[in-house]
């Protein structure tokens, strides 16, 4: 139930990420056009808008990759084989990510406040619009990694039950 909800949530993020990448082309393209062709005036805010979109794209991609388990890892120790070792191996990773996610969330709230007292130079936009992505990422990671941890424990339980 919660798993399916998080899945939907992640699908929403996927659509949003695709849209952001497409949208990224607009300010950068305008900047080139403006300077080179003179068709449109040189807007000094294009670079600012591009980095806003960019920050969000990176943060959303980083959130999803925790749900999908696609952040790159390095495999030097061999795969665990027994159910308990599998739980420990996967569980350790998920516990570390969840712990960091909680730090990111807690201090991310402070960080968002720090953004809130600033306005961007060119567009005079309140910087909360990008800084808020930090606590949101922390919250989403906590949900995603926390749920994966729950799943790992359930898989272990089912296996040990099946073995008995």
């Amino acid at each position: 139930m919660i798993g399916r909800m998080l899945d939907h949530c992640c699908n929403g993020l996927r659509v949003l990420l695709g849209v952001l990448i497409a949208a990224l082309a607009i300010p950068v393209g305008m900047q080139v056009l403006a300077r080179y062709t003179g068709i449109i005036p040189v807007y000094l805010w294009t670079e600012e808008l591009a980095t806003f979109i960019f920050v969000w794209a990176v943060m959303i991609g980083a959130m999803m990759a925790v749900w999908d388990g696609t952040h790159f890892d390095v495999r030097v120790i061999p795969d665990a084989t027994s159910p308990l070792m599998i739980l420990l191996q996967d569980g350790f990773v998920l516990v570390m990510i969840t712990a960091f996610a909680l730090i990111f969330f807690w201090y991310g709230i402070e960080y968002a406040k720090f953004g809130y007292i600033q306005n961007s130079v060119m567009m005079r936009a309140n910087m909360l619009i990008t800084y808020i992505s930090v606590p949101i990422a922390g919250a989403m990671w906590t949900l995603f990694a926390g749920y994966r941890l729950y799943e790992a424990v359930m898989v272990y339980k089912n296996r040990t039950v099946a073995a008995q």
Binding site: L17, G18, A57, V58, M59, I60, G61, T70
Partner: peptide, 14 residues
């Protein structure tokens, strides 16, 4: 667009 964003953001996050 989605595939690009997914791969780019994983590398950039690191």
């Amino acid at each position: 667009f989605y595939d690009t964003g997914r791969f780019a953001s994983i590398s950039l996050f690191a």
